[in-house]
Design a protein around this nucleic acid. Sequence first.
DNA 1: TCTACATTTGAGCAATTGTGCAAATGTATT
DNA 2: AATACATTTGCACAATTGCTCAAATGTAGA
Lengths: 115, 115
Amino acid sequence: MTEVCKVYEEHLDKILEAQKKLPEEETILEISDFFDALGNPTRLKILFALIEDELCTCDLSNITGLSVSAISHQLRILKDRKIVAYRKDGKNVFYRLDDEHVREILKVALRHMEE
Amino acid sequence: MTEVCKVYEEHLDKILEAQKKLPEEETILEISDFFDALGNPTRLKILFALIEDELCTCDLSNITGLSVSAISHQLRILKDRKIVAYRKDGKNVFYRLDDEHVREILKVALRHMEE
DNA sequence: TCTACATTTGAGCAATTGTGCAAATGTATT
DNA sequence: AATACATTTGCACAATTGCTCAAATGTAGA
């Protein structure tokens, strides 16, 4: 990144203003991780399936038509990013949405697509 | 995907219920594309920079510290997915958020991280 | 302890992504 | 037409991703 264009001086105010209001790098990375987790068809299916009720790994495999292993890999990502939570019950592990924000965002996105 | 676990029969009701409520494959792919576009630090910086005001490619390069080329590549993705819109003015191209939903979702995400 | 089943994990691989570079394309001014 | 500047585009390449397969781990019951 070496280039700087000549409008720099002219737009200086807007640039400084926008720069000042930009969230911190760390926050940007966190939010980016969050959206990145939602930006995959398999993970989205998992999340939409969990909107109503908790489900186990195997249920999610049945619902999505993907291998148990594939689901488990994706669940780990969602778990690491605190998007889903889980509880163990015997041989099963039941997953659920971890946060109301997630439900809210999924709904806004669905609305966004339908309009 | 060959395995089917034995809880299938037992959980059948929940599975069918969840499957029925899952959005269509095409909708899932659209929403996934949408979140995928937000799930990248550079593109997020662009979007947060555009929350208040329109900016040109070069401004966005200055604000983010990335090359004009890198910004332009990312803007194309955001443009293709109808997340930003643009207007041309002489040699400059000014970009802006294309949709209130995007602003709304960015705000919910920011809140999500801060809590 | 042995067996069965649910889940997780690690390796490996094809496919996709994000960036810089260099060249091409717009656009205005002289 | 020639020049200058803003932007876009195609190529290349390292890095990352999502899946399968096979093996490992957890858990319950005989």
